[in-house]
Amino acid sequence: MHVLFKPGFFSNVPVRHALVLGAIVALVSGVVGVMTVVRSQSFAGHALTDVATTGGAGAAYVGVSPLAGFLGGAVAGAGAMEFIGVQRARQRDIATGIVLGAATGLSALFLYLNATSSATTGVTQQVLFGSIFTVDSSTITVTALTGVIVLLVLAVVWRPLLLASLSAEMAAALGTRVRLVGAAFIVSMAVAVGLSSIAVGSILSTALLIGPAATALRLTRSLRAAIVTSCALGVVATWAGILCAYDSYDWDPSSHGLPVSSFIVGIVVLLYGISGLPGLRRRAHARNRDVLRTHDAHHAMPGSA
């Protein structure tokens, strides 16, 4: 037991907070991520972390709460993307790019102003890489509450949004306002992403949004299963990463450990790589459940006999 879990792992308050916060972010990202990948909006999902960061840097300069800055930045960015928004997927990425470019410019300004005006040292690093180990319990409460709101909004628009993502024409024929549900989604995504980038940093925000969802979509046979798998993979990767990071302080006494985000990203990408193995994919792509059952039954026979 002590080989895997170093002494103090469970009694350490920052670690406990990190485990809880990581799980909340992984759960919300797991659900939002499935729809993000289905709609091919990974770029927007990632860009919004940077736009949120701009909001955070701006908040630091103006002197309002960073949380308001991150959320405000992300939602404003999503609004701008939707406003420029062009229907074709290729053009949609350009809209995202324009917003990201402008936000980046503002980021440069805020970081410069912060560096020159006040003693907010480490703001660049904090903003870019965040740290799951430095959060307090109030952040956890806010993250959990906002996460629940995001999930509720998604549940309300889920079915019209899903059909609109698969075929905008068929959704419109059923009377769905395709543009409206799309906007509802990107704003929900912005809130989720803004929250996760302040809680766990922008690298992890993107990794947890895209990685587990893309992995789950490859492995499962229905969206419901994909969402459950995506959440589970996200939580497992986050917890395992936190454990590794905690243990890494002991690996080499001279070093000061490795960042938790590096471990989690490594695990997320590894899981995605494993999901590409042909054996796993064959199961998910079998044409008929009955065929699959008879196949399994056939293999089970010798053992049971």
């Binding site: 990974s42 770029f43 990685g211 893309a214 960042p259 590096s262 990203v265 990408v269």
Partner: peptide
């Protein structure tokens, strides 16, 4: 082989995570 936006996102976060590891040292 896979959705190109997913591939791009994962390659990006992997590189950034390596960068974070390098910087930490």
């Amino acid at each position: 082989r896979t959705r190109s936006d997913v591939a791009t996102a994962l390659v990006l976060v992997l590189m950034l995570a390596l960068g974070a590891a390098f910087l930490s040292q």
